[in-house]
Simulated assay, not measured.
Amino acid sequence: MSRATVLACLVSTSVLALTVATASPAQAAGVDYVALGDSYSSGVGAPGQSGTCLRSNYSYAAQWAAKNSPTTFQFLACSGAVTDDVVKTQVPAMSSAADLISITIGGNDAGFASTVLTCLTGSDTTCTAKVNAGKTYVATTLPGKLDSTYAAIKAKAPGAKVVVLSYPNIFDTSAVICEMSSTKRKALNSGAQVLDDMIKSRVAAAGFTFSDVRDNFSGHGVCAAKPYLNGLTIIPPQNSYHPNSSGYTNGYLPALTSAA
């Protein structure tokens, strides 16, 4: 597969499936758990992805369900999802009796895939300009999108505890050799910080719980000695710049566990 094909695959489309995974009746009584969100919640980057939503049993959501045996588990997170997809497709499909809801959302709204593509193929200047455009969107448009999404979740399941997880900083900026320049890596990490800080503020306004994964991923970015995220990946290309199994197990799972 050519580099061009790999890069093109980074620009994801929002195709949602309504497949619902339900825990078996033999499981102990507990919470009714719903996993919403985008590829960072569906498990892209880990082995065993399936269906149009690319869900994996190595995702933090599936791992939490396996360890905690909730009464029911609805796995609705979908690769490529934006806030509108959560409101229009995922929230209507979830149970109003949910006790616990987790979600990552906002990265695709802010242009994650196209920004990474620009930084891979363009100059430092072009990359920085693209990241700055994303920051402007995060400051001006994304807050309303997040507020509407959180309001829809609250309206559908008013009794649920909602845990909103952050995104990690993607790159190790100390590595001498890496697939992107230091300038590009710092710019992309800066964009992630701005995105996470905005998500945190809107989560607080909604009265939900914000769980920050950035410390868990610190020192484990792309190009680190023990990365928790995939770099540019040839097969399958969608794994590029998503958590690997270690990232979901050691980065995201503890963040959900501590907040649930």
Rank of each mutant, 00 (worst) to 15 (best):
A28H: 14
Y33S: 09
A28V: 14
Y60L: 01
Y60H: 07
S39P: 08
G37W: 05
A62H: 05
D38F: 10
A62G: 02
Y40I: 02
Y58F: 13
S59F: 01
D38N: 14
W64A: 03
S59C: 01
S56L: 01
S69F: 03
Y40F: 15
T52Y: 02
G51I: 06
S69V: 03
W64V: 02
A29Q: 15
G37M: 06
Y60S: 01
S69G: 08
Y60I: 00
V44F: 01
C53I: 06
L36F: 12
S59V: 02
N57L: 12
S41C: 07
L36V: 11
S41V: 10
L54N: 12
R55N: 03
T52S: 14
Y33V: 11
L54T: 03
T52R: 13
G37R: 05
G37K: 06
G45H: 10
A29L: 14
A61E: 03
S41D: 09
Y40P: 01
A66T: 12
A61I: 02
W64L: 06
G37H: 02
G30K: 14
S69L: 11
S59G: 00
Y40M: 11
A35N: 14
A62M: 05
L36P: 10
A35K: 09
A61F: 04
S56I: 00
N68C: 08
V34T: 13
V44C: 06
A46T: 11
A62L: 02
L36S: 12
S59T: 01
N57A: 12
D38P: 10
A62D: 07
A62K: 05
R55T: 04
T52Q: 13
A28E: 14
P47Q: 09
A29W: 10
N57R: 13
A46M: 07
K67G: 07
N57K: 08
G45M: 13
A28F: 12
V31I: 11
S59W: 00
A66C: 00
W64Q: 01
D38W: 10
